[in-house]
C-alpha cells in the first residue's frame, strides 16, 4: 500500500488516465475502445470522477442562484440526495453487466463501472462553471442556463451509449437494443429490491412481535 502511494510512476499513471477522460469525452468511440482494450483507464480516475460528480451535485444546492434552484432545506437529506446519483449508477452498472454478459458482451463488471464513470465527466465539467455563471444572470437570460444544463446531461447520455458499444464490442443496433434492455433490467432490479425489503421488514416485524408475545407471556 505504501509503495503504491509513494510510487511516482503510479501517480503518473493515475494522472494520465485522468487526463485521458478528456480525450474520451471528445472522441468517445476511439477513447472508450482504448479505455479498456489499451488499459488506459484506471479505477482511481473513475472513482475521482464519480466523487467530483457527487461534489458537483451537492455544491449545486448551495451555490446555484435561487433563480434556478430553490432548495427546501428542511427536507434535504444529503445521503438520499447523493443516492439519487449512486443508486441509478449502481443499478445501471449491475443491470447492464448482468444482461450483456449473457449476450456476448466483452466488458466485465469493473470495466462497465469504469466506463460509466468516465461518461460522467461532462457533468462536473459543466456544472461547476455553470454554478458560478448562474449567479450572474437574470430571469430573462435563464434560457442559457437551461440549455447548458440540459447539454451536460445529454452529453453524458450519449457518452454512455457510445461507451457501452465499445466496451462490449457491439454493433450500433445491438448496442441500442441492449441500452433499452438495460433500462428494463434496472426496473426489474428495483422491483426485486422492493420485494426483498418489504419481505425482510415483514419478517423482522414477525420476529419482533413473536419476541414481544413471548416476553408478555413470561
Amino acid at each position: 500500500m505504501k509503495e503504491l502511494f509513494m510510487n511516482r510512476s503510479s501517480w503518473q499513471r493515475y494522472w494520465k488516465s485522468l487526463k485521458f477522460s478528456m480525450y474520451c469525452i471528445t472522441h468517445p468511440l476511439d477513447g472508450f475502445w482504448d479505455l479498456t482494450h489499451e488499459k488506459r483507464g484506471t479505477y482511481a480516475a473513475a472513482n475521482t470522477i464519480l466523487i467530483l460528480t457527487l461534489i458537483a451535485r451537492i455544491a449545486q444546492l448551495r451555490f446555484t442562484s435561487f433563480v434556478f434552484l430553490r432548495v427546501y432545506w428542511e427536507e434535504i437529506n444529503i445521503f438520499l440526495y447523493l443516492s439519487s446519483i449512486l443508486f441509478p449508477l449502481a443499478l445501471f452498472v449491475v443491470g447492464n453487466w448482468a444482461l450483456t454478459t449473457l449476450f456476448d458482451g466483452k466488458g466485465r463488471l469493473g470495466q462497465v463501472y469504469m466506463a460509466t464513470c468516465y461518461c460522467l465527466v461532462p457533468y462536473p465539467l459543466i456544472q461547476f462553471p455553470l454554478m458560478i455563471f448562474s449567479n450572474f444572470v437574470t430571469v430573462d437570460e435563464a434560457e442559457f442556463y437551461t440549455v447548458i444544463n440540459g447539454l451536460s446531461l445529454v452529453w453524458c447520455a450519449l457518452l454512455i451509449i457510445a461507451a457501452m458499444g465499445q466496451i462490449h464490442e457491439y454493433s450500433l443496433a445491438k448496442n441500442i437494443l441492449f441500452m433499452v434492455a438495460s433500462l428494463f433490467a434496472m426496473l426489474v432490479i428495483v422491483f426485486i429490491l422492493m420485494l426483498f425489503f418489504s419481505m425482510i421488514s415483514q419478517g423482522v416485524a414477525y420476529f419482533i412481535s413473536l419476541g414481544k408475545e413471548f416476553l408478555f407471556r413470561l
Partner: peptide
C-alpha cells in the same frame, strides 16, 4: 407543482430505502 416535486422526490427514495416504515 413544487409541492408535488418535493413529495415525489422524497417518496421515491423513501420507498426504496425505508420500505415498510411508516
Amino acid at each position: 407543482m413544487k409541492r408535488l416535486l418535493k413529495r415525489i422526490g422524497a417518496l421515491a427514495l423513501c420507498t426504496v430505502v425505508f420500505a415498510g416504515s411508516t
